[in-house]
Amino acid sequence: MSKIDRLPPVREAGGEVGREAEPPTRPAPPPPPSPASPEPGRRIRRKGLGLGSSLRRDRALLLMMVPGMAYFLVFHYGALFGNVIAFKEYIPFVGVADSPWVGLGNFTALFADPLFWRATVNTLVLSAVQLVFYFPVPLALALLLHSVSWARARKFVQSVVYLPHFLSWVILVALFTQVLGGDGLLNGLLGGGDGKTVVDLVGNPEAFKPLMVVQLIWKECGWGTIIFLAALHNVDESLYEAAALDGAGPWRRFWHVTLPGVRPVVILLLILRLGDILSVGFEQILLQRDAFGPATAEVIDTFVYYNAIVDGHWGVSAAAALAKGVIGAVLIYAANKFAHRLGEQGVYR
């Protein structure tokens, strides 16, 4: 899931409290003769309606929630309990409940493992590289698209650049290998081919980080413009007009109207990226880990996968994943606090 996918719901979290607290906007209907025979408008909360009658009133809606909630309870909240194996020596044949407790043993083993630290360093470096070289690209493209006044051209470009978001990483890696790999187009055009390799960017450890960033840009930067374009469109048109009438040229309008308009979104995305700093494209990297070798391409998520599912060190891997999850949640919290200090809205209030 890309960053953009996570955005709106978290903003929703902020809006949630406000919305629920608002008084109902619809006119209150006359009170029903009895709670047992629900009337139109019964959804509006009335004082003195007990839990039992609320449940009876909403039973159809509650039934509708059952399949979806069952999913969340089993596959999210049920799964969260699986994290206890971070404190156990998990033996698959014995099961989670009966595996012996080991206290913090898995964490000590994890923090003593140089491979884990190598994966952590790789993750942090790649995250930083992405932040510097990927993060501004969708914003730049959005600003460019926004400035194109020929609507047809703009829509055409949008349709094209959104498309790669819908491709799987398997296909993307195949496409990139075909263009940039040792048997690929670029190598052929530069005079290689037929067994002769001039450039092979897929598999050369030196090219790993640039290639990861280029792939990310190719796949997600178009889709990433959506959130910025929405912010740009929400800027009040009359601000531009007023600035223009006051003699501000295009550059000053950009600086004083456009940029402040997208700043909250930029900060929001930065916070989310910070909370995600320990995750870098799991599927993308897992698919190419073997081509580049684990020394370059092992990140925390692939470390967890290989260590647990392939090598069977379940407890240690679960400890790594749990530590990562907790640090991520703390980072989001801290970044959000920091954004509030700066007087920004942040992810939630």
Binding site: R6, V10, F75, L80, G82, N83, V304, A308, A318, A329
Partner: peptide, 15 residues
């Protein structure tokens, strides 16, 4: 919404 902040990881899901 909490599942955004703290998603279930690969190993717990596998379990």
């Amino acid at each position: 919404l909490f599942t955004f902040l703290f998603p279930a990881g690969m190993i717990p899901s596998y379990l």
